[in-house]
């Protein structure tokens, strides 16, 4: 019996697919289509909708504030992805190498992932608060002034730190699985050859782990663009002086503070396009550089 004949008829197959299709259509495809439609209208609270064509897009094209938000988002995403991968990789390597208490180290690295983003943001708020923060004193003792409520780059750094910290656990779970899959004999060969630890990580482990690492780059990119809203909202509200005004927060404000649904929808379509283009590029690179072992 071929796999095509599992179901008696098309009806049965359709019925089994229906729940998934229903959820996808109602919560994914319909809102996407609606957002695209709304982006072509001048739409707001208590106003009648008016078709404006591509005017919203032209507005964004000419808005320097929006341009800076795009740049901030892309830089932020790049730093989140690079920082998360680098820190997670090194932590994973340390955990992989340690002989005793591996489980405990693993738990201590993974638990931030289990924290709701809002709670994580609050934790960091109290850790780095310019006047009350637990670490503020020690940092200022080093001669640095903690003033991220007013200092844009500092605020950007704090949001970046939370975003990376929160995502490490997720990355480590995948990386430790990939690293444990590397045959011990490779490690031992490298040891016998006198290959240093970091050299081994970079030249032996990382190339073999590339499929996992590329998967994580993609997941982390999506996370950086969409999953970091709570940190910005709770820590900086996009400020100071729009230094942390990433696209996802910018469009939220446009829609739900200024009630410009049309422009907000346009911004969400642009964000979608930005991420989609990045995904395509990343998949291309994955095909080219990823090593899928024998």
């Amino acid at each position: 019996m071929s796999t095509r004949e599992i179901f008696d008829g098309r009806l049965e197959a359709a019925l089994l697919l229906a729940p998934t299709l229903l959820v996808s259509v109602v919560f994914l495809y319909y809102p996407t289509a609606l957002a695209f439609r709304t982006s072509l209208f001048d739409s707001g609270f208590g106003r009648a909708e008016e078709f404006v064509g591509l005017e919203n897009y032209l507005t964004l094209l000419g808005s320097s504030a929006y341009h800076s938000s795009v740049v901030i988002s892309v830089v932020f995403a790049a730093l989140v992805v690079a920082g998360t991968i680098a820190v997670s990789l090194y932590l994973t390597f340390l955990i992989h190498e340690v002989d005793t208490g591996q489980g405990w180290y693993l738990i201590s690295v993974i638990w931030p992932y289990a924290l709701p983003p809002a709670v994580a943001a609050l934790v960091f708020l109290f850790v780095f608060h310019p006047t009350l923060g637990v670490l503020t004193g020690p940092i200022e003792a080093l001669g640095l002034e903690v003033d991220w409520f007013n200092d844009g780059p500092q605020a950007f750094l704090v949001v970046l730190l939370v975003a990376i910290w929160k995502q490490i656990g997720y990355n480590v779970i995948f990386m430790i699985a990939a690293m444990k899959n590397i045959p011990d004999a490779l490690t031992e060969t490298a040891e016998l050859d006198g290959v240093g630890r970091l050299h081994r990580l970079v030249s032996v482990y990382v190339p073999i782990m590339t499929p996992t690492l590329f998967f994580l780059v993609i997941i982390n990119t999506i996370y950086a663009f969409f999953g970091t809203f709570a940190f910005v909202d709770l820590l900086t509200s996009g400020g100071p002086a729009n230094a942390t005004n990433v696209l996802i927060f910018d469009l939220y404000r446009e829609g739900f503070s200024f009630f410009n649904f049309g422009v907000a929808s346009t911004k969400s379509v642009v964000l979608f396009l930005v991420v989609a283009v990045l995904m395509v590029i990343q998949f291309r690179l994955t095909e080219e550089y990823s090593y899928y072992g024998a």
Partner: peptide, 24 residues
């Protein structure tokens, strides 16, 4: 040492496998 499963670095060519340890 020569291992049962050869322990060749899968992402390196034969030459690089042979020279990797010497280079390191």
């Amino acid at each position: 040492m020569v291992f049962q499963n050869y322990a060749l670095y899968p992402h390196m060519t034969g030459r690089r496998n042979i020279t990797f340890g010497m280079n390191a």
